[in-house]
Amino acid sequence: MSGATSAIYNSIFRSNATMLGAVFVSAFGIQMAFDTGSSKVWDTVNRGRQWKDIKQKYITKPEEDEEE
């Protein structure tokens, strides 16, 4: 336990620049994870209701005759 704590301390909190870097990087990562996760939950709750769920029905036809 104390080994892990001191390892964390030495690797992250010892230098201010490292800690700031860790804060920004983890904020970025957590936000990405939170957004993806909540979108996934939202789309599961609303499965079949949103345009992206039904657009295939209307997109496939025009794609055949007009490919640019």
Partner: peptide
């Protein structure tokens, strides 16, 4: 509160 519009 937890539902979107139904695109269809």
């Amino acid at each position: 509160f937890y539902k979107t519009y139904d695109a269809a």
